[in-house]
Design a protein around this nucleic acid. Structure first.
Lengths: 226, 226
DNA sequence: ACTTTGCATGTTACATGTAAATATGAGATA
DNA sequence: TATCTCATATTTACATGTAACATGCAAAGT
């Protein structure tokens, strides 16, 4: 192999301490949630190893990790494919989120430090700007950021982990779903209605507002093609 | 169809169909939830491979799988140890369960087939017998069975998976916690109070009963040594 | 036409090799 | 006694080898 150039996405420099598995898993995850690897696509270990110029071991481990995250599904002796998240899955995910996000809002209101609540309000501000400019990208980013921050405020690593995984799974389906400006505006209003009670430490109100918000989101999803 | 194939013709020296990874993961999992592998114990890949007389590859994959399930925790370059689930973790787990089990009860009441509800009542009967005889083992088994069956009735594989994982994590801590006869009796009463509304398809009542049940369980846990 | 057989290709699942990081423990030093 | 040093053992992380299995397709048989 004389001086060939590798045009495919190469792994960056391996600074001390970082493991290949983690870098590879992250890269594949980004390709999946970014829509560059479509649902149903085979995640071939040898092929990915070749394209990343690494051996098969870390690739295999990375892929199995993604299976554990629900971003890919394994069929013994057949291999792993990118998870298909259809309309029905999206509804089931929201059913779970309706409860888990409500729990997160409640515990966030009960025990988040004031600094975290400051951040929540800053995110609301960012989202206001994004919606005003009609930036769907910005809306999605601030939306994810808000929910993630609320989960962090609940001080329950397990809860955060579960919600992160559900969000990643959702983003597979959301690749194909458009969001209207009205929906974004409604979402923003609801978000503000969640952060306000968190600010005044009104846990039951925060919980109720979040639950209603997810239920409304579920209803919007259902309308899309239910 | 003439000349049908006989499935017992194979003379393959290897065990057919099942994968080593799965068998090994199951074995280690049983050792962890069964208390034979204590929290903090190093899960050394070479050592386990030797003791199981297999190579390191399937052992490593099995261990990483358990990390994904939350039964073990990984520290890069240091290795994997059996997860420590302390009193605080137990409370956080119950906080999540308070919401997720409530969701399961609701959707079970809404869409479980009658046959599954029959099974629920049969389990209640088994638990009655176990409690009457003071069998803690039987109580725990019927308890797990009941919750798992309700989750199945909710027809949401994701929900079942999450709850199964939380239950496995709990069983690590429950190894060291005793349950009194009164607690068992209270649990049984609450269980019956959950199945009854499921039977009459009263989803809100089922949800409320389940949520109260988990909250009560959490309170009992908190009393133990909170 | 329709199934079967055999071959070519690619992949998974498991085994093994090995450099480098990490733990371990004996002996030296304060 | 406590702790520092350094050599040794163990382990992790990644690389590579390979048999069994899966799959597509073309040739052969019905």
């Amino acid at each position: 192999m004389a001086g060939e150039r590798d045009q495919t996405l190469d792994i960056g420099p391996l600074t001390g301490g970082t493991r290949l598995v983690d870098v590879i898993a992250q890269k594949i995850k980004e390709a999946i949630v970014g829509g560059r690897l479509r649902p149903g696509t085979q995640l071939s270990v040898p092929a990915l190893a070749r394209s990343l110029t690494v051996s098969r071991s870390p690739v295999r481990e990375a892929i199995l990790h993604l299976v554990g995250q629900g971003l890919a599904v394994e069929t013994p002796r057949k291999g792993v494919v990118v998870a298909r998240v259809d309309h029905d899955d999206l509804m089931r995910i929201h059913e779970i989120r309706e409860y888990l996000e409500a729990a997160a809002a409640r515990y966030c209101a009960e025990r988040a430090p004031a600094s975290l609540i400051d951040r929540l309000e800053a995110i609301i501000g960012d989202q206001e700007r994004a919606v005003r400019q009609g930036l769907a990208q910005g809306y999605f980013e601030t939306n994810a950021s808000l929910h993630r921050t609320i989960a962090r405020g609940a001080a329950s690593p397990r809860l955060s982990t579960i919600l992160d995984q559900l969000e990643a799974q959702m983003s597979i389906a959301l690749q194909h779903i458009s969001t209207s400006r009205e929906h974004m505006a409604a979402g923003l209003r609801e978000h503000a209605g969640i952060v306000a009670p968190i600010r005044r430490r009104d846990a039951p109100a925060a919980e109720a507002a979040m639950r209603a918000h997810i239920a409304a989101t579920l209803a919007r999803v259902r309308l899309q093609r239910g």
